[in-house]
Amino acid sequence: MRQKVILAMLALAAVLLLPNLYVISMLPDEMRQGQIFRIIFFHVPAAASAMIGSAVALVASVLFLLTKNFRYDALAVAVTEVGLAFLAVNLVTGSIWARVIWGVWWAWDARLTSALICWVLYAGYLILRQALEEPTQRATFAAVYSIFAFTDVPIVYFSIRWWRTLHPQPVFFSKTGSFPPDWGRAFMINMLAVFLLYAALTMIRLRQEETQREIDYLRRTVHAI
């Protein structure tokens, strides 16, 4: 059943994404940026899905601490790990864009820096998990860490913004934005496809985590004999 849901989600994501790639490629080049503006169709959805992922990780972590149900722990890891990959996509695409437009691979501007810090924060989550052997302790400590990390995200964001701001202001949903409606439609479809991909990957990772727990259980049973 779960297998079918995952396959259906992946298929739907592909159906949405493939024609949309064609639509995006046929869009006229942006006036000042040329070709490279198309990266935004992936850059922003990746960041948005990673952001939603961190919120899901927080909720799952709190629920684990309250219920001690390992399902929530598995969800927290799955969502964080996939989120890290998506945030990496965001960072890499942002870096490519910066190379073309700004002429440098990396600029310490507000949003790039915050995104990088978030990546490092949540990488710490995985490193902490890896270092802890006993499953209950691992889940508990990781959940505590996740709560600290999530709390830090908005503080990081504001402090970095005060520190320096160079980044172009968001184009979408802002009054000064100049995003034609047909671009907006392609963008939203891409957003949906990326979300679906995120969810499907999370579910696959979730299943791995459950298998891992079963292996751990069997291993301990064997050791006890």
Partner: peptide
């Protein structure tokens, strides 16, 4: 002690 279980993971 009433029906106490302790789990390490699922074990």
């Amino acid at each position: 002690c009433a029906g106490v279980w302790k789990f390490y993971g699922d074990y």
